[in-house]
Design a protein around this nucleic acid. Sequence first.
DNA 1: ATGGCTGCTTTGAGCAGA
Length: 257
Amino acid sequence: MKIATWNVNSVRVREPRLVAFLGREQPDVLCLQELKVVDDDFPHEAVRAAGYEAVTFGQKTYNGVGILAKAGTKVENVSRTFEDGDDDPQARVIAADVLGVRVVSIYVPNGGDVGSEKWAYKQSWLKRLRTYASSRLDLSGKVAICGDINIAPEARDVAKPDRWKNSVLFHPEMTAAFQELLALGLVDTARIHHSGEGPFTWWDYRMLAFPKGDGLRIDHIFASKALASSCSGVRVDRDERKGAQPSDHAPLIAVFS
DNA sequence: ATGGCTGCTTTGAGCAGA
């Protein structure tokens, strides 16, 4: 089973790349973030033509998440939001049962500047994510939490740590929140197979970050132990960050035997 | 040390991303 996650930064703009990616990689499941469209505007026709069906939790302008699976695959028990009774005006989480795995596609808030309102929102959102993971997910079963987590957990996850050490992506409070999430019983699958630098998943559009190698590993696939034990490989599709009109994030792909 | 790009929006300057 191949599970991929990709912050497409506008599914409208990225539609040709999305279709090409599906055809090339043929993932069983693809989690998307930053759709930036309402559900009615999602390119269902193009996705169907590529052999996939999508469930989405869209939003105009910002946010929006989805889960794609091959046509014919059952996608069941779809839930949107944390379902904790606390209204979140931002569409950042969708979950579904696919091929025996509870798949969660999430888009963690960026956090703006450290100490800002957006920072507080990121902090509280991560707390709600922990509560959700421990109370709404059966972490003793097969679970995959995939998405743009907006946290680089360690120095080896940041090409230029000194540059980023005080940013919202690599702040000690955030790296601690990352570890608290894993402590619930989740495995950072990329680290099963990569012990060195990276693999990075995001490069700022500005500052020639990609050609300069100024990358961060902020997109992740967290697997419950029951699922992680079968993880046979994880990689980043860096080619998606090249060429015309790339997303600033590259897809992350995990294979489970 | 900053911003440099990209996509969005009551179409166009400002917000947001990370």
